[in-house]
Design a protein around this nucleic acid. Structure first.
Length: 586
RNA sequence: GCCCCGGUAGCUCAGUGGAUAGAGCGAAUGCCUCCUAAGCGUUAGGUCGCAGGUUCGAUUCCUGCCCGGGGCACCA
């Protein structure tokens, strides 16, 4: 509907003589917005005021000229010049009736568009290290990324969802050694757990499975394991040096193959858990991309070689550096350490190289806010490899705090006492979790109120929105219980009977849905859709309270039910994008 | 020190180069012989952090400052 007004204005603009508005003064896009005040009509444009600036003409006179040039359209009742030069558009009610008809005809497709023109987007999100279960922060990434993917698809992009599995590198070795130590405890050894190890209970569980599988085969005496190692942090040593020595010792005692096996057992178990968790949460990925595969198939080496060949890499102090400062980063970055070990940055370069090679039009990353310093260097890598900087986009998600009854719930990652995503889902349910996670702007720290998420009142947007949907279903059941039928064609034909202000307000709100989806997708802002649905539910409940739907007059009843079914359709579509269910009863 | 995010009603947060800045909660208060009261209505509540600048017009854009959170590794 907004598009219609924009197109009319564009036609009017191109109809103005060049002498009046030179071509280079004409904006590529005309801005049309919904009015806040009904006295200003339904839509307004500041086009004349913008032209007035560039052409140094009177804005009101320009507005008059534009209105004169405006082609007539059956949906437009009236246009006027107002204020400093606004052009206000008043629509006929029939325009909204047509929109209701479109909603019911398009049904599940209503609100979708081909704005994206089928361009391909690689959306990478979550990508949490497989060193433990997902916690509530990852949950926000999952909900945000999944909703973003749905939004982009709704406006015509081809979206590939990918989870980058960091299954290589030192963190994996720490995971393996942590598992092995718990296994030794299970075998009966007594030991002091390293400060830098993974301490969560899940490690002991995995160690138990390992013990069942291999018995005492990998058991070594604790004295043998720990003799001659440097001091750990609690004893005044360096925890990193200590755990590295411990890893080397483990390798030496049980052999590289067995160490690898322990690593695989732990990794497979944790990854399976993550996949199951996200699956239950309704978050699906097209591909789980293994970091290790990039190393195994030589991609990392090739990417490093490509950078060296292009003259963007150099050696210093025994390390291989990427000259990222030449591409806007604040300083150069190490890719291969002086001990020959590649940094994670090396594989991330290889990964982005891989993404480019797969021919995506756009690379969209969702990262935690703590990774913002990483944006410049990865973009630098992309550009150095010959990729277009414009296709690279990162959206940062701020942190999540849990509140329970006004008290902040504590989380800490290494202690193993964090609140997992699974715990959260069990407590508040998937629907509430999905919606609460995307209710706030991703730029905003999120205070997740556990009590609110489970409360059954209109302050809880989940129940409030779902209830509006269920209420329509309930009325339809009620109608059938009375032996009545709904005549949809009659309803559409008699929408003119809907003259109550609450009914008109509901129709106007419904017509905003396609704009809202588009805006939310293009701004990467799912929270706009949540707010819209809340407002829509409010309009529905208001109308429901003000006017009986199941009235005796069949024509009026059909019209009202038709409008209600349209509202139900839009709510269902919107909740679908959010990954929230639309129940028939509550 | 540098970089990112935030500062809008008592609280949690939307919003925008335009016309009188919004919602929910909380507070006060009204509505069930009637389709789900898991609902609806009414009232009160604001120096859009502060100071400059650009503009016909700034809460919105720019600069500086203040406050809160985060980041500045040959860790992931």
């Amino acid at each position: 509907m907004k598009k219609l007004i924009e197109s009319l204005l564009r036609q009017a603009l191109s109809a103005l003589p060049v002498s009046r508005v030179p071509p280079d003064a004409r904006p590529a896009e005309v801005d049309v917005e919904r009015t806040r005040d009904a006295a200003h009509g339904d839509f307004a444009s500041n086009l004349a005021m913008r032209l007035a600036k560039t052409t140094r003409q009177n804005p009101r006179a320009l507005a008059e000229a534009l209105i004169d040039a405006l082609p007539g359209h059956p949906a437009v009742a009236k246009t006027e010049v107002a204020g400093a030069g606004f052009i206000n558009f008043f629509l006929k009610d029939t325009a909204y009736y047509d929109e209701v008809a479109r909603i019911l005809a398009d049904s599940g497709q209503y609100g979708r568009s081909d704005q994206g023109g089928g361009r391909s987007v690689l959306l990478e999100f979550v990508s949490a290290n497989p060193t433990g279960p997902l916690h509530v922060g990852h949950g926000r990434h999952a909900a945000y990324g999944a909703t973003l993917g749905n939004l982009l698809e709704a406006v015509g992009y081809r979206v590939t969802r990918e989870y980058y599995v960091n299954d290589a590198g030192r963190q994996m070795e720490i995971l393996a050694v942590s598992t092995w130590l718990r296994y030794l405890e299970r075998c009966g050894e007594t030991l002091e757990f390293p400060a830098n190890g993974y301490r969560g209970d899940y490690i002991a569980t995995i160690a138990g499975q390992l013990h069942e599988a291999v018995g005492g085969e990998l058991r070594r005496a604790a004295a043998e394991v720990f003799s001659g190692l440097p001091a750990d942090e609690p004893r005044g040593g360096d925890k990193d040096a200590y755990i590295d020595a411990l890893i080397a010792r483990a390798r030496a005692l049980i052999g590289t193959d067995a160490f690898r096996r322990v690593l695989s057992v732990a990794l497979d178990d944790i990854l399976r858990d993550i996949q199951q968790d996200l699956g239950e949460f309704g978050v699906r990925f097209d591909r789980w991309f293994s970091e290790r595969s990039l190393e195994d198939d030589g991609s990392v080496d090739r990417a490093l070689a490509a950078l060296e060949k292009a003259g963007h890499a150099y050696r210093r102090d025994g390390a291989l550096w990427f000259k990222s400062s030449a591409f806007g980063d604040e300083k150069d970055r190490v890719m291969v350490r002086d001990n020959g070990v590649k940094t994670y940055f090396a594989s991330d370069i290889a990964y982005i190289f891989n993404k480019l090679a797969r021919g995506f039009d756009h690379l969209l990353y969702v990262w935690g806010a703590d990774h913002h310093g990483y944006i410049a260097r990865l973009r630098a890598g992309l550009v150095a490899l010959g990729g277009p900087a414009g296709c690279f986009e990162v959206r940062l998600v701020q942190f999540v705090s849990l509140y329970r009854g006004g008290e902040k719930a504590q989380m800490s990652t290494r202690s193993g006492e964090f609140v997992t995503l699974r715990d959260l889902r069990r407590e508040v349910g998937n629907d509430a979790a999905r919606l609460f996670y995307v209710m706030r702007s991703n730029d905003q720290h999120l205070d997740f109120d556990l009590e609110l998420a489970t409360s059954r009142s209109n302050e809880n947007p989940v129940f409030y929105i779902q209830y509006a949907h269920a209420r329509v279903a309930s009325v339809m059941r009620q109608m059938q219980g009375r032996g009545l039928e709904h005549d949809g064609r009659q309803g559409l034909a008699r929408l003119g009977l809907l003259v109550e202000p609450q009914e008109v307000a509901l129709m106007k709100r419904l017509s905003q849905y396609p704009e809202t989806v588009e805006q939310a997708a293009l701004q990467r802002a799912p929270h706009l859709l949540v707010h819209y649905l809340r407002d829509l539910a409010n309009d529905f409940h208001t109308n429901y309270s003000a006017h009986q739907l199941l009235v005796d007059d069949p024509a009026l009843r059909d019209a009202r039910l038709t409008l209600s079914l349209a509202a139900q359709t839009v709510i269902r579509n919107g909740l679908g994008i959010l990954g929230v269910s639309a129940p028939e009863s509550m």
